[in-house]
């Protein structure tokens, strides 16, 4: 245990602190935005894939047997190594169960990478809400809570 020069002992401490601050900041940010449906993907920044009225057309092309909900469709992208996908599945299936005309469709992102790129899905779970015509109304990355889903359903918002 010989005395060490101070300038030679700080790098590890600095990296440790940086890592902890970065992780805490990222974690808090994620906790805030996770599951939040973008206020209005339609009238704000026109992200190309997002505004495509044929979101359902893309989905349907990739998942032929799928059926569009009469009022709305919850399209959930999941992957194998994704714990929050389970939670999301339970929430969305329950919402679809309790509300007439709302369908829930879970898509394995790994098996449908072209669709994932086309719809610009970056994380799992990502939930797209499609209106009755199959147009994407809004989307959320991360597990949404039930209230967040209900608040974002287009036919429940009006009136």
């Amino acid at each position: 245990m010989s005395p060490k020069p101070l300038d030679n002992v700080v790098t590890g401490i600095v990296i440790l602190l940086l890592a902890v601050f970065a992780a805490a900041g990222f974690g808090l940010y994620r906790r805030r935005v996770d599951g939040r449906f973008a206020p209005s993907a339609v009238d704000e920044t026109p992200a190309p894939a997002v505004e495509d009225p044929s979101a359902w057309a893309s989905v349907n092309a990739a998942v032929p047997g799928a059926e569009l909900g009469e009022q709305a469709t919850l399209v959930q992208f999941s992957s194998a190594f994704c714990a929050p996908c389970r939670t999301t599945r339970v929430v969305l299936a329950d919402v679809a169960d309790r509300h007439d005309g709302v369908a829930h469709l879970e898509i394995d992102a790994e098996e449908h990478l072209a669709l994932v790129r086309q719809l610009d899905v970056r994380r799992t779970p990502t939930t797209l809400i499609l209106d009755r015509s199959g147009r994407e109304v809004t989307r959320a990355a991360g597990a949404p809570r039930r209230e967040q889903v209900l608040a974002a359903l287009p036919h429940l918002q009006e009136s």
Partner: peptide, 25 residues
Amino acid sequence: AIVAAFLNAVFAFCLGCEMYLLGLR
């Protein structure tokens, strides 16, 4: 590794799992 372990321990957030889909893409 510290970043990933911290996120997992404190926020139950799995960084590696998220990177998985990005990697596939």
